[in-house]
């Protein structure tokens, strides 16, 4: 199964990954804040991930790692 890892404390909650993902795998957390005080991105539907890395490409903080 493909694996998306959000490096939570590097994330600034900008949401560009959510916008870029073709499979609605990601979402911005509404429940907890990261160390910087942002609502970080989180993996909402891990099984839908096709490892296209669109999210990682658009992430301004290189906070996403993808494995296949």
């Amino acid at each position: 199964m493909n694996k998306v890892t959000i490096l939570e404390d590097w994330c600034k909650g900008c949401g560009l990954c959510v916008r870029a993902c073709p499979k609605a795998v990601l979402a911005i957390s509404t429940t907890h804040l990261n160390k910087k005080g942002y609502y970080p991105a989180e993996v909402a539907n891990p099984e839908a991930c096709i490892a296209c890395a669109a999210c990682a490409r658009t992430c301004p903080d290189t906070a996403i790692e993808i494995e296949k």
Binding site: R57, P60, D61, I64, E65, E67, K68
Partner: peptide
């Protein structure tokens, strides 16, 4: 599992000061 996407060591392990959603960080990585 094979790595598809991971941070390059040429981009230093330093948090970027840019605003959320700023394009600079993307180009720095590229």
């Amino acid at each position: 599992m094979t790595v598809v996407f991971k941070k390059t060591p040429v981009l230093r392990d330093v948090p970027l000061h840019y605003c959320p959603g700023c394009g600079h960080g993307i180009v720095h990585r590229m």
